[in-house]
Design a protein around this nucleic acid. Structure first.
Length: 499
DNA sequence: AAAAAAT
């Protein structure tokens, strides 16, 4: 039903081309980034021969392009602006990167060749005239590498001034992206700074801070805005501005104003700053809005929503009699067998329920940690670090970690509550937050790994939400009977997480 | 409601 809406806005109708090939498992090719799991067709599989075919032109001189490459076509729809030809990169060498950056990719990151989204987006990001780009790609498919490499490539190492800026919705994501950039840029000599609020004890008053000399700055909107306002962060030499989770950053209350403000502040002093918007989700309304926040001649990459669910992540529902039995399900089944399949994140809707669930499980003797935005910054950092180090197996979280959090050992995601949209006024029926759902699911199955999601459903209200989610993404969420451990084992086996 | 972050 919504498909027509989707395609009409993503892509002008093709004129002469046959319909895009059926979608194949994205996961198969996303695995390219994981050396030990690489079992793909050899890289000679004709990626380099693809070129851009003009399919249709609209009044803005937008050209719809279809990248015809590997047999497992991932159906990323490209809309390019003007007549710059872009050729997909089959190797990182195709991108004219510095030897230092190539070394970072191969030695530090252990990458072999670009993933699909990298192959397509990087030429668009790196080739003059450096047009703005709105890029959508699946969870865990390597978006971070796209913009991190974009930032590193567009920095002049000899110029000691901020040249690349990246804005993220959470502290955790800003830290994670900074770590990726430092790793990838290890041999480049490029200096970076993470702009998130410091612990109260070692924070320096902004007025006393020296101006930022780092060449790349990655952070959250409040701190970045503050640095710009106090003239500690100059936008004059910025070549590239990235919004990670851009749909949230630019369209959601609380983020939108800050993001647009930062964009305007930069524009005022710098007309040539390339803007990149990255996310796994851009719903139709948001897509429409954000495309008006970037330059008119921007390029676009989009994926249909029906093809966004990761096929490698199996989705299940568990019907629970009441809220209390949700805890039973978690302790009897998830803890009994879940611990054998890797790490688990349990998502809850409120900060309060994060604490409550944590407490209940702790009282029952289970080792869990929980994270939510009301905790102290250093506490948040500590909990994430323990989880990353594998010291904790099960982490309860609000949606603070719903987006972007990349921990490859997470194979299991529990939706203790389904995400719902906050509707102002008196709505009769609750609407699921489809984007948050997809992002939560995407915490499992990183880079094409297997994963499973258990949605704990209680009552008609939850059942309704679940049904809407299934309909929206065109996926089936299999029911698991909450009767015995065997039922759960069967589900995990089916998901490929158990033998 | 949650996410940022400032006061």
């Amino acid at each position: 039903m919504a498909e027509s809406v989707d395609s009409s806005n993503t892509t002008p109708p093709p004129e002469s081309k046959p319909a895009a090939t059926e979608h194949k498992s994205w996961a198969d090719e996303a695995e390219e980034e994981v050396p030990e799991e690489t079992n793909d067709a050899p890289s000679s599989s004709s990626v380099s021969s693809l070129n851009v075919d003009a399919l249709a032109i609209d009044e803005n001189k937008k050209t719809a392009t279809k990248f015809l490459d590997e047999p497992e076509d991932s159906n990323i729809q490209a809309v390019t602006s003007g007549d710059t030809p872009y050729t997909s990169a089959s190797t990182f060498e195709d991108l004219n990167l510095s030897p230092e950056l190539l070394k970072g990719l191969y030695v530090e990151m252990k990458f072999q060749k670009p993933s699909k989204i990298q192959a397509i987006s990087l030429p668009m990001i790196l080739s003059p005239p450096h047009r703005d780009l709105i890029a959508q790609a699946h969870n865990g498919s390597g978006k971070t590498t796209c913009f991190v490499l974009g930032m590193l490539s567009r920095v002049d190492p000899n110029l000691k001034a901020p040249q690349a800026l990246c804005i993220c919705p959470t502290r955790e994501l800003a830290i994670q992206n900074t770590e990726v950039l430092r790793k990838m840029g290890k041999y480049s000599g490029i200096i970076s700074e993470c702009a998130v609020p410091a612990d109260s004890r070692d924070s320096i008053p902004i007025a006393k801070r020296a101006p930022i000399m780092a060449q790349v700055v990655i952070g959250t909107p409040g701190t970045i805005k503050k640095w710009i306002t106090y003239k500690k962060l100059s936008a004059v030499r910025l070549n590239i501005l990235v919004f990670d989770e851009a749909d949230q950053m630019l369209a959601e209350d609380g983020f939108k104003d800050d993001s647009l403000r930062i964009m305007k502040d930069i524009e005022r002093v710098n007309a040539n700053c390339q803007v990149l918007l990255f996310s796994a989700t851009f719903n139709e309304i948001v897509k429409n809005f954000v495309s008006r926040t970037v330059k008119k001649d921007h390029n676009q990459l989009f994926v249909k929503k029906e093809e966004l669910s990761l096929e490698a992540v199996k989705q299940y529902r568990v019907n629970c009699l009441d809220e209390l039995s949700k805890v039973e399900v978690i302790k009897d089944y998830i803890f009994e067998i879940g611990e054998n399949v890797g790490q688990t994140i349990i998502f809850v809707r409120t900060r309060h329920s994060a604490s409550m669930l944590h407490q209940s499980l702790a009282e029952l003797g289970y080792e869990v940690t929980s994270i939510q935005g009301a905790l102290q910054h250093d506490e948040r950092d500590k909990i994430v670090k323990e989880f990353r180090d594998g010291l904790t197996q099960v982490l309860i979280s609000t949606d603070v970690l719903a987006r972007g959090f990349d921990q490859q050992q997470v194979n299991l995601v529990i939706n203790y509550d389904l995400p719902v949209k906050h509707i102002v006024g008196y709505a009769r029926e609750q609407e699921p937050d489809y984007e948050v759902y997809l992002h939560r699911v995407g915490r499992a199955g990183r880079f094409g790994r297997k994963g499973a999601v258990f949605n704990l459903i209680c009552g008609e209200r939850d059942a309704n939400l679940m049904a809407k989610i299934e309909q929206h993404f065109g996926t089936h969420v299999t029911e698991v009977r909450a009767k015995s451990v065997e039922d759960y084992k069967g589900a995990l086996r089916e998901a490929g997480l158990l033998q």
